[in-house]
């Protein structure tokens, strides 16, 4: 029979998975709201946000209770300490989704600014990073977590490419300034979501291996 603490840790993991599932659903709806120009899906994103907020409060309390009552060590400690960072990270992604969805409501009735599929590619790449970061957590998959961290550079490059194109459009056609400004906020939110996915992957590596891979340039330059 598992110890009560084992059951509590399992509940924490299940709670995180449920929250991650809700966030992934919001991400997917956000992506579709833009791609399909769907007002309905954009509104749905905002309606799901309170569920994620509730999950954040509940899981925060679970982590505090476990720290206070069980005084965990080693991998248990790493899981709980990392959960205290994963939970606000997931909540942050949900907020970014809401930000994008609000812009989608404004942009969808208007003519598109970008002729290509760059925006969809940025959304898909970011969504994939979050999906893989969550998978790495579920499956304890360190190589996948590392792949997510590496993927952030591709999202950053795509963001910069679209940003430059939007600037160029605004200079060329003042009539698209308003729409482009909204789109800049959209791509910035996608880029921030990718950063949060990277943070999640870093936490997964900490949970699995006990190594802190954040700000690796600082560690590389650290004096012995």
């Amino acid at each position: 029979m598992p110890r009560p603490f084992e059951a509590e840790l399992r509940d924490l993991k299940l709670g995180l998975l449920a929250m991650a599932g809700q966030v992934e659903e919001m991400l997917h709806l956000t992506q579709q709201a833009l791609a399909e120009r769907s007002t309905h899906k954009a509104e749905l994103v905002s309606r799901l946000d309170p569920l994620v907020d509730e999950a954040e409060l509940r899981l925060d309390q679970t982590c505090i209770d476990l720290l206070a009552l069980r005084a965990p060590f080693a991998s248990d400690l790493r899981l709980i300490a990392s959960s205290l960072k994963l939970v606000p990270g997931l909540e942050r992604i949900a907020d970014h989704c809401c930000n994008i969805a609000r812009r989608a409501l404004i942009l969808n009735p208007q003519p598109p600014v970008l002729p290509g599929d760059e925006l969809q590619r940025l959304g898909a790449a970011t969504e994939s990073m979050v999906h893989r970061a969550v998978d790495a957590f579920i499956n304890g998959d360190a190589p996948m977590a590392r792949a997510v961290i590496l993927a952030d550079d591709q999202v950053d490059a795509l963001y910069l490419q679209i940003y430059t194109e939007l600037l160029r459009n605004m200079l060329a056609d003042p009539l698209c300034i308003e729409r482009s400004s909204h789109l800049i906020i959209v791509i910035k939110n996608w880029e921030r979501i990718a950063d949060v996915a990277t943070n999640i992957a870093e936490e997964v590596l900490f949970i699995l291996e006990g190594v802190n891979v954040k700000h690796s340039y600082l560690q590389a330059n650290a004096k012995p």
Partner: peptide, 16 residues
């Protein structure tokens, strides 16, 4: 030892 022990036996002991 208490955050990232190297040996699984240590891990199992300190986590009860």
């Amino acid at each position: 030892i208490f955050t990232s022990p190297k040996k699984s036996m240590t891990e199992d002991y300190i986590t009860g």
